[in-house]
Design a binder for these strands. Structure first.
Lengths: 216, 216, 216, 216
DNA sequence: GATGAATGAGCGTTCATTCAT
DNA sequence: TATGAATGAACGCTCATTCAT
């Protein structure tokens, strides 16, 4: 199987790397099956360990779920907030960078599964959802809001609702991620990811641009 | 007992209405918990019948799932395709009508749960997903595509990718529906549905409008 | 198997009798194996039902344990306290009646297993032990104490410690019960129950008799 | 770590003392929890070693159980049989010495737990029970029987059933031991050990004394 | 010798499914 | 038609046992 780790890996290195290997396997299985339908046997098999090993690192299936989310959250935040520093002068470029960066680093990777997972399971894990909302969603929307505000201040963007616009802007990317982990895995689609993204950026930038602003 | 259905309902209508009552209850439970975590006990209790009764109408839990989707599909199609006839002359109005109509009739109602359910469970039910993709998604996207094509032909909309734009346009509404059935049920948000929708329509229409077209 | 119930029993009668059938089976298995080593499969098999059926009547293995004790407690109390009324005039006869009665109705029957179970598991179920101590042990010792007090008052018994003597008197019977459910089940003994009991009563009565009292 | 054994112990003694340290820890845990509910983790932790170390000295949990019994058996016998030599002339004193000695050296110490353990687990380990019956119980009862026989021969004791009396005599002490390791650990009792023992000896001696024998 | 990470068989518990009433 | 008691396969979790270090 693809998930089988090299058996030759030294014991000590394994010990420290284990938790990440396990959460990575768990993420894949949880995203594919959903938390409830996911079997710990499958998670263990994908990680190349036995079922009991999971319990050396996590107290329960639910604890494993929380660890999966927790672990998926850190990169989402860290990477994102660094972008505000770069491209500080060009809001258009900054916004593009944030949105496209999210897709590149999160949405199109395994980490995007965390988004699907949370949207699917939020009601079963309200505390985790609340944490995620604060730690990821709000901070992510803040990034977009900051870029928008700068663009408006510079006269590049029309004045728009700074609360409502960020979720609207990110929605097509989140939906593409959902799609990637749902229908895309079993049905063909007429639309390539590339043309979806191009169309999305084109629409967003046209939608935001201030009347007098020069076309890029 | 609390689960007892209203005794006032006429016996005859009951018999025929049963399946819809059951799928309605099942939809609610499936959307809240996810298919796998949903218990038939809960479905039965919500429908006010005993668990065994479910098996008088559906062969299995999976058959119930399919019926839920099936039933949620019909109105989505029927209602949608009628719109092309009306507002045939004004593409902007037609597009608004389609998108807003979807939200009003589907996204904001219990039926919106079907969308969440399918996105969450597509990989566990690939045949159902394939059917849904054909019977709902493609036909729904076609509606939007037609409206776009008319608008472009009339010079109201910029020429845009007719394959990629429809899914981009519907994405924010689908995401709002997902949100409604996930985080909204357990976390507060700063954005009202109304301002989200206003911002969305505003952005979309600005993004699509041909340079020379008159602002509405 | 001996525990298999008649399959012909009507459904309705079963429903009401079930809990007692299950606790009876559980008592037997718990006494033989100990609570922890007892498997619910064995309990179910002995009761002639499937494992799942146990959960229709008891929430958990621990709840089943508590029910077993609870159920074993009632007859122990009820039967015992009725004896004080009879033989009210002859303390010697009363004491014999209490001790011998305990053996006949409790110690030598399946109910005696409850005593073994509680002695073996008290530390794992402290709350149950506390309840048992109050509801059974204290009340049982009170019976003996009352008989002793009457006998002393009538000059039939030597004056003895009214607190310490009852547990000493019941100990050989309890131990015989323990023996019955432990070594007796797997090892031969040189002593018959009958001669043990005769010797016990003889010793006790000689030990208690007041110097001047007439031999019986 | 907390589990680390005292470093001050000389290395050489350690090696030889290990098995006894392990069986002592095992006895304590087995008595408290019962064999089945006892975890080897707990045994190891109490002994201050790792779980794997147990397997350097014992093949299995069951082997550890047998060693615990085995080890508890030796002192019970050795000490007991030495008493017959001393107090050879005074049967009353001899009997008191045997019974009281058992309580002092066995019943009231950690070794008393072996008695509880065997009574609780006999049916799960019939071979061990058979061995224990021969190696401990029969020989222990023989001690008492010998003392009784001498007392009867000297006219100090009434003639009593020499088979049945020994188990009756030891029963209250065994029961006190059971109590010590069960209810006493979680419930209060009105009777002190001292008054229980005094009452017990008093009753036994009065019960056994020949009519003409002088009171002590 | 000693460790503790890893294993996997086994058990308590759940729940979709069946069927006698 | 409707019920709900009964079932048993399946899964989360435990823990005695092993073995590389």
């Amino acid at each position: 199987m693809s998930g089988t780790p090299a058996k030759a890996a030294p014991r000590r290195r394994r010990k420290e790397a284990r938790p990440q290997e396990l959460t990575a396997a768990a993420l894949a299985v949880f995203v594919e099956k959903g938390f409830s339908a996911a079997k710990l046997d499958d998670v263990a098999a994908r990680a190349g360990v036995s079922k009991g090993t999971l319990y050396l690192y996590f107290d329960s299936k639910e604890a494993l779920f929380k660890a999966v989310i927790q672990e998926g959250v850190v990169p989402a935040i860290e990477e994102g907030e660094a972008m505000l520093e770069n491209n500080a002068d060009d809001p258009v470029q900054l916004l593009r960078c944030i949105l496209f960066g999210w897709w590149e680093r999160i949405g199109s990777t395994e980490l995007g599964g965390v988004s699907k997972l949370m949207l699917s399971e939020a009601r079963n894990f309200p505390e985790v959802a609340a944490y995620y909302q604060e730690a990821v969603i709000q901070r992510g929307l803040n990034l977009i809001r900051t870029a928008l505000a700068r663009g408006i201040a510079q006269g590049m963007f029309r004045p728009v609702d700074l609360e409502a616009t960020p979720p609207v802007l990110i929605a097509p990317l989140l939906h593409l991620t959902m799609w990637h982990h749902s229908f895309a895995a079993c049905c063909d689609s007429n639309v390539s990811v590339e043309s979806y993204l191009n169309t999305y950026f084109d629409l967003v930038m046209n939608g935001l641009r201030a009347p007098g602003a020069i076309r890029e």
